[in-house]
């Protein structure tokens, strides 16, 4: 198991902040992908949204693992 130790409160708050930011950025990217005029930007935004979703999942994984261990 990679994350056997519990997170420090600092790590947890950084992870939670990062999760919020990644989610916000993902939402913005998908909105922009629909709104933008040029097609090349559309793919850029949707690719970026996908990358942000992966980031968010990664962060959730770390937070979730330690959450389930704590409970």
């Amino acid at each position: 198991m990679p994350y056997q130790n519990n997170l420090t409160s600092k790590e947890r708050s950084y992870l939670e902040d990062a999760l919020q930011m990644e989610n916000l950025c993902m939402t913005k990217c998908s909105v922009y992908a629909n709104q933008c005029q040029m097609p090349e930007f559309k793919s850029l935004f949707s690719d970026h949204a996908k990358a942000k979703r992966q980031h968010a999942n990664e962060i959730k994984r770390i937070l979730g693992q330690t959450n389930s261990q704590m409970s």
Binding site: P2, N5, E11, Y14, M21, E22
Partner: peptide
């Protein structure tokens, strides 16, 4: 976000968390 991660890297305790 990059500056957030910068701080997070510097202040992480767990090496796996830092690597992430």
């Amino acid at each position: 976000m990059s500056s957030l991660y910068d701080h997070a890297i510097l202040e992480s305790n767990d090496s796996m968390v830092r690597e992430t």
